[in-house]
Design a protein around this nucleic acid. Structure first.
Lengths: 159, 159
DNA sequence: CTTGATGCAAATGGTTTGCATGTTT
DNA sequence: AAACATGCAAACCATTTGCATCAAG
């Protein structure tokens, strides 16, 4: 862990494929291709359809239903996590890119929130509810600063 | 706020219907019926299909598509909130019954969590991210105490 | 060679929509 | 009377599934 702190993509892919094998799952073209795209996507999520599009650039024959099945497998293996945003198809991201979302219900903007932000909540759930929270992906509704301010502005001019 | 702290259901219904009118929406049989059921349901959520079932006991002609449209209207009016649990159809609850969910990914049990639990998170989102969080409904993954313990037990006997 | 993965087409299921009609205001 | 809500049937769209074929171990 000396100078390549962010594992380069090829190494990451290898690690993920090994994890797959370790879980008894087979390494196939489709699975490799999907993982490649998820790695390339970094912190952003991809849905099945979007993954299909990108995968097709190199492997046009991989069927959409295979993408769905692949995502199931990867999820079973714990390599990816589901992120559901309202009014959007299911999207996935690699497990090692954990983060949460603050969704502005006014402008729709999504802000990434680091997992540490949830620590107090996690602690209290453990102590008060005997519950081991492992929040993979939360979406918290609210209003971002910009929208707050413009709402206040227009309220002032309207009244 | 002396002895009828929990507004009785009839009064609650009236209040909600007034809110509807205030928003310029019409008060119809379908809307009243849906609100009645949501009030009766209290803290539990109801999906469109479940609502239809219950509404049909008194008003068999109300169509499922009307239930969907009614839910949209009530949501627009801010009277209800959407709660999405994984692998389940959309469900709604009245806005005044705010709470959150801790979902055990092992046994599937769902624990209700009071909104105050999120206060530290809300505070930090405001101070660090200029974001006014108004979390209506969150679902937090994790493992409940029971499952934790039985997992540990079986691990011990397996190894 | 055996088991598991894939392509394809067809089914599913929750939700939405167009339109003619009925209801609320 | 005017605007809006409803019933109904049909459309939609993401996702799933059955089955014959193919590829990974």
């Amino acid at each position: 862990v000396s100078r390549s702190a962010p594992l380069d993509d090829a190494a990451k892919l290898d690690a993920l494929l090994q994890a797959l094998r370790a879980r008894g799952q087979r390494v196939t073209v489709a699975r490799r291709a999907v993982l490649e795209q998820l790695i390339a996507a970094g912190a952003s999520h991809l849905g099945a359809e979007q993954l299909a599009e990108r995968v097709h650039e190199h492997h046009p024959t991989i069927h959409l239903s295979t993408i769905y099945r692949t995502l199931d497998s990867l999820d079973d293996a714990g390599l990816i996590h589901l992120a559901r945003l309202p009014d959007q198809p299911a999207a996935y991201h690699l497990t090692d890119d954990v983060h949460h979302h603050a969704l502005c219900t006014s402008c729709g903007r999504v802000v990434d929130v680091p997992p540490s932000m949830l620590d107090p909540l996690v602690d209290r759930l453990r102590s008060d509810y005997d519950f081991r929270a492992d929040p993979h992906h939360l979406t918290i509704d609210g209003v971002c600063g910009n929208c707050e301010r413009s709402a206040r502005r227009s309220r002032r001019s309207t009244s």
